[in-house]
Structures are given as structure tokens and as C-alpha cells.
Write a protein that binds this DNA or RNA. Sequence first.
DNA 1: CGAGGTTTTGAGGCGAGTCAAGGCGTGTGG
DNA 2: CCACACGCCTTGACTCGCCTCAAAACCTCG
Lengths: 236, 236
Amino acid sequence: MLFDASTRDTFLDVFEGAPERKLSAGETLINAGADAGQVFNIVKGTLMVSRIGNDGRRQVLSFLFRDNFIGLTADRYFFTVQAVTPATVVCQSRQVLEDRLEQDPVVERTFLNMVYRVLENSLDLIYSLGQRTSVERLAVFLLYLRNRRLIADQLAADAPELNTIDLPMSRQDIADFLGLKKETVSRSFTQLDEQGLITRPDNYHADVTDLEGLRKLAGIQDFASPLRPSAAHGDA
Amino acid sequence: MLFDASTRDTFLDVFEGAPERKLSAGETLINAGADAGQVFNIVKGTLMVSRIGNDGRRQVLSFLFRDNFIGLTADRYFFTVQAVTPATVVCQSRQVLEDRLEQDPVVERTFLNMVYRVLENSLDLIYSLGQRTSVERLAVFLLYLRNRRLIADQLAADAPELNTIDLPMSRQDIADFLGLKKETVSRSFTQLDEQGLITRPDNYHADVTDLEGLRKLAGIQDFASPLRPSAAHGDA
DNA sequence: CGAGGTTTTGAGGCGAGTCAAGGCGTGTGG
DNA sequence: CCACACGCCTTGACTCGCCTCAAAACCTCG
């Protein structure tokens, strides 16, 4: 959602040949408040963007996957980024990116489009948090993950492997993303299961058994941006 | 919050000499799904960005004021924009804006910075909706409006007129922004009043009587972006 | 002055939170 | 290879905050 690109955007070539950095699960890449002199792109693994209040409340703002860009801020990072799974990122100085954006209008265009997608996704999350019930939020979340995979792996919209949804993050992470408590997330999973919409082979996977039902619960068309097949940046 | 600029950014000069359009209170400027061939800047009045679900639930994403830019999307508007008060906007074709961004790196830079601020604000809202209680959300909202005025009118941080907060929107609008029901918003106002943090001369104004108390409730430092005095775009 | 809309206040209900116990899966050491 | 321990997830009972429904107060404008 927030702070990501969908698939290979042309501006990502600034990361070619850039140094890699490996992160272990739970490791912090960026601390809120840090200087934003570096930007990153994810090569492998899942990361998590979050913000933590004075009193310890945490809101997860976004989960990030392969080819998602990290660095959408002017001067300082105002959010924290951590690895959910072991992960690899490539690092580039912000200056190199900015020079590239200045020189090449096409690259700049795809970058701006990426930013717009991020904005649209943040809007989806705002709608979820402000208007949807716990079960609805979870349904939307599962469809969101499904859709990420569709785009990342360049699959057909009805590819059977899309019915298995990977959940690399903990229930607590999901809870902090959806503005719920982990017990509520757990109960919501159970509800989706009891309603026959999903089955749960294990805690880190969900199988969609009734896609239409899930979509109905979620209010479907809410996947404007990641689904949008014809955006001007060559996404699937 | 979402979709705005703080004060006069250099890219706003693309609106110089552009045709004006007057809106009456409640009038719709942009319908979700509309072609985004035009972009706008607010000359006068308050507007509101929202998204409405299939079932009629509405989430207000942002309130917009003077010199706020409207048009942060690639090809189609995925949100609705309406006037809250009678308002005046200037209209420009997106092409003119994009040409300007391409030609002038400085203008492009200030535009990107504006987009980053919008993103940061949307993040603040996500944190509010996901983590804060109703009274806290209202406190943050009032401080947000106070801060807008500080920037828009170029006032000192402790200017006495900042203690009077204009509330041009209805309780329902506030409720849909904060993810609450209008009755809850009303009760939250009453609570802030009873706690001695504000007084309410009438329904469209609130006087801050205990700024520190309000900030404490809100969790203070949450106004990263609109307050940030030294961002690279000349804001107050 | 009256009508309509908006806001406030009240009473009661419900969904999500809290607190606590039990189950399950994984990994480690015997 | 099994046993145990630990962490995470699930489930249950109860609480609380926000919602719902309803009435009264208020404000605006003909």
C-alpha cells in the first residue's frame, strides 16, 4: 500500500549495480526521524512501514514486497521500516535518484505515477479504517495481498495459485495494520472460515474458497490502483 | 491533509491568469471516476475530498483551503471533491502543469515536496483512525485546523487569533472525516469543553483555552509536515 | 413566528477490547 | 527421536467505547 511501486517502473534502473543490504527478520532498516539521504528498493522479502506513538501504540502503514520503492519523503523519514521476513534491499543515494528524475521526463513521469498509486492506496486504507468493520477489513486485506501477488508474479487474474494467500506477517502486525487487536484479527479469520470464504491450512496461509463472497464483503471495486491494468507504467 | 499544498508553492504559478470557477456550498467540483484532464487550485473557501462506498458509507479524506492544489492522480480522479462553503477555484489543464514540471526542475522539486507533505498528512490520518480514541481524534483535528490557519495566514506560532478555530464544516462532515458518528463528535466536543480545553461560542467556532492540554491529548509532535517550518518550499 | 435542519443529550445495544486460559507448532536439548 | 519449553494463535467470559434510536434544544431563514 503506502510507499510502494507495483512492478518494475522505469525509475528503478537507478538501483542497477547499487550495493545490496541483507536484513534478518525483525531488523530495522529505517528509524523514524532519520535523515533520508538514502533510498531503497526491495529485492527479496517482506518489509513493513509503521509509525509508533509516544505511548507505544503502533500503526502499520504498509507492507512492502519485491520491487517496492522506499524513500517517499523530502528530507527526513517520518516512519519506521523493518523487515518482516529475511530480506534484501538495494541502496542508492537520494541524489542519484533525483538527478535521474530531473534528466529524464519519462522516468519522472513513472515515478510520479508510482507516488500517485501510493497515495491512492493510502486512501484505501483510510477508508477501511474509518468505515469498515473488522471482518470487512480483513477481507479487504486478503484481497489486497492476493492482488499484490497477481501483479508481482505477472499472473492471470484467475490463476489458480492466487487462491493461496501468503501471510508472512504475524497476527499482531496485521492487527496494527487494520487498527484492531490481535484477538479480533484471530476472531475475524475464524469468521471468514466459518462463513466458507476461506480455509486456513496453517497460520501463514489462507486459501480463498469463495472469491466472489470475499469481494462482496470487501465492497469489490476498492482496488482501483493496484488492479488498474492499464496505468501508464507498464504494470500487468 | 490529503491532496493539498501548504502555502504558495512555486508550481502554483501555472494557475496565473487561468479561468476561475465559483462554487456554491455543497456543489461538486469533481466526481469520483471523472477524467483528470483538469487540475485546480483554491482561491477562496473550503472544499472537501471524500470517497463514498457502494453502500453509502462516506469517508472524508481531507479538507482543503486556500492555495491547496487539487489534482494528485495520474489519469482519473478516484475521489470526489465538493465545496463545503461557497468557494472559488482556478482551473488549468493538466498538460500545462506537466509541461511546467518537465521544464523546470525547481518547480518539479516543490511539486514533489508538496506531494510528500500530502502523503505525510494521510499518514497522520491513518494513525488517528487506527489508533486514537474519539476525543483524541477530535483534539488532533482541532490542532490540525489551527495549524492550517497558522500557515495560511503566516501567523506567529503563538498569535492570539489562532486560539479561535473556524469550523466551516458540519458535524456530519467532521464525523465522516474522523471515522465516527455525528453524535459521537458532538459528545467529544462536549468532553473537551467539560475538561476545560475549549469553549464553544457557536457551532462553527471553537476557542482553545488550554493549548498544552489539547496537545497532550493529541500526542503533540504529530504535526510533522504542516508545521515543519523549514521545508524546501518556502512555507512559513 | 413557524418550519426544517442541525446539534445536543439520553437510554440502551453491540462490536471490538481486555484479561485470562488453553491449544498448537516450532525448535532445542536430553 | 521424543519431550519439553516457548512463542504465537485461538477461544472464552466479561467490559467498555462507540453506535443506534429517539427526543429535545437550538439555529437559520423564509
